[in-house]
């Protein structure tokens, strides 16, 4: 079995003046993921190496970091694939791992995502439904679910956020993750505040700030398309009033269907 080098950017603000690189050697095994390599280093070589992880299969969003200069989840990334990529340093048989960029480092590969979460909360991620809630479910169509383009499957890992060049320069920008969430709510026929939501992002820190670099698409481990959602939001914002009227009509049918079915 070949040995490879895992080169990790390390930083403990309590003891280090600046980040430093540290190399570890692990055996390359085709069944190993990059996370397995990190776990192995931590448990056998250096317990102080610090990173987040939990579910191990790309649903909890804990382990987003930068591998070979590209953001993603390490739990599903095969180590072999990482080795075969050209590393930042061009070194053979070397995988480089760094924390997600544009965020303060707490320790090693753990970043402080407070701003990221604040922006998520700022878009009011919850649905704001009608006041007269039906006794059964709203009659939403599968086509309406499909139109959300799987935005509901976003795991909030932050890979897109930390790949966005706009975020790099401007933390007031609301960010691809929060805009994707907002897109989900705007597309949801049960939501009553489409106009207010579109109004919230029709400005220079919202959908119009996106430079369409589209790094977010490549970074997303769930295959989602924040750039497209942001672009759609921008277009929708220009006709928010009309969409709001259409939503009001749809809400009537959503409820009427339910009431009709209840009286069947």
């Amino acid at each position: 079995m070949t040995n490879i080098t895992v080169r990790i950017k390390r930083f403990n603000p309590d003891t280090d003046d600046k980040p430093r690189w540290q190399d570890y050697t692990v055996a390359l095994d085709t069944e190993k993921t990059v996370l397995d390599a990190l776990e192995e280093i931590k448990s056998e070589q250096d317990g102080s190496l610090t990173f987040r992880r939990s579910c191990r299969h790309a649903i909890c969003g804990s382990c987003a970091m930068m591998v070979n200069r590209k953001n993603g989840l390490v739990c599903t990334k095969p180590l072999k694939e990482a080795v075969e990529e050209v590393g930042f340093f061009g070194a053979k048989n070397t995988v480089t791992i760094e924390p997600l960029p544009y965020l303060p480092v707490i320790k090693d590969l753990v970043v402080d995502q407070s701003v990221f979460w604040q922006q998520y909360e700022a878009v009011r991620p919850w649905v704001i439904p009608v006041e007269n809630i039906p006794t059964k479910e709203f009659r939403m169509s599968q086509a309406e679910v499909d139109a959300m383009n799987r935005a509901e499957t976003c795991i909030m890992c932050g890979a897109c956020y930390s790949s966005c060049p706009v975020i790099a320069g401007n933390k007031s920008y609301i960010g691809p993750h929060a805009l994707l969430k907002l897109f989900l709510r705007v597309m949801d026929p049960r939501d009553t505040e489409i106009e207010a939501r579109l109004d919230q992002i029709a400005n220079d820190n919202g959908a119009f700030r996106c430079h369409k670099v589209s790094n977010c698409i490549g970074a997303c481990p769930k295959g989602l398309n924040p750039a497209q959602a942001i672009s759609a939001l921008g277009n929708m914002a220009l006709r928010a009033n009309k969409l709001s009227q259409a939503r009001a009509e749809r809400l009537k049918t959503l409820i009427a269907q339910v009431e009709a079915s209840a009286s069947e």
Partner: peptide, 21 residues
Amino acid sequence: VIYEYEHMGCVFSRTDDGRIN
């Protein structure tokens, strides 16, 4: 509980007539 999830905005898969699948 299921209806409450639905009213709170949970995105379920749907039947042809729009009910929770």
